[in-house]
Design a protein around this nucleic acid. Structure first.
Lengths: 126, 126
DNA sequence: TCGAACGATCACACGTATGTCAGGGGTCAA
DNA sequence: TTGACCCCTGACATACGTGTGATCGTTCGA
């Protein structure tokens, strides 16, 4: 598919798809006329990128963890340098912290909503 | 405490503390000379703000959910308008999505790291 | 063959979180 | 009183994700 279809299927502007490519998050095939072409896998890939961006990870980090998520469980041992593994561990821990922070606060918001709804007293003006 | 101590205890620059105040995330007492003063509660409050920012929430949203997290379980019913409750529900759901996305990807990174470490073969050059 | 619809690149702009610096005042101990 | 150190405000700068527009080439159906 070309960029327009990928854009529609992922709800992501063409501009951003080109930006993600520029940042090395996705790679496209080019036809002779220069048009970008993508296969089905890119739909999930782009949605994954958007989710991670929305969760606060910068493209620089996303670029590093994406190779871990490729479907074929083929691990590229050669390019798994100790430094890269350390970086991944660090990012994994940072993601865990984010998760815990989000859970804490989401639960607090939930508790608040529950309390408000339970104690709803329409007869009280103020 | 004054802004310098709060800054040190939260690892947050003075500049940012003032910015958070400007955005309505925190409120300070002022002494006659204009200095900001904070009590102990602000240490946790600031750390919470930083966690949420790091998790990808903008100050606009953080400002809305912070009142839900105040220690005294005093719910301010009067200012809990239906619109605000709807907004909170929406944000709660968005936080849940973020959490799920982060967990999925964190687990994938973990699995990658486990695989690499398990299959470590120091004798293989390439 | 023309025009609509799509693609490409490039440049400028914006919002947000953050850094940094300038210019000025307050506090306090030597 | 001077100097070190804290605070204030305001302005400018930067990185990053994203929008928008200009200008141009490609494709394809009417």
């Amino acid at each position: 598919m070309r960029i327009g279809e990928l854009s529609e299927r992922t709800g992501t502007s063409r501009r951003l798809l080109r930006y993600y490519e520029e940042q090395g998050l996705i790679v496209s095939q080019r036809s002779p006329n220069g048009y970008r072409h993508y296969d089905e896998r890119f739909v999930d890939r782009v949605l994954q990128i958007r989710g991670l961006l929305d969760a606060g990870l910068p493209t620089r980090i996303i670029k590093q963890i994406l190779p871990c998520l490729d479907k074929p469980r083929v691990i590229h041992f050669p390019d798994a340098t100790p430094e890269m593994l350390a970086t991944l561990e660090l990012e994994r821990d940072r993601m865990t912290e984010r998760i815990e922070c989000l859970i804490r606060n989401r639960d607090a918001v939930s508790a608040y909503l529950d309390t408000v709804r339970t104690n709803r007293r329409p007869e009280v003006a103020a």
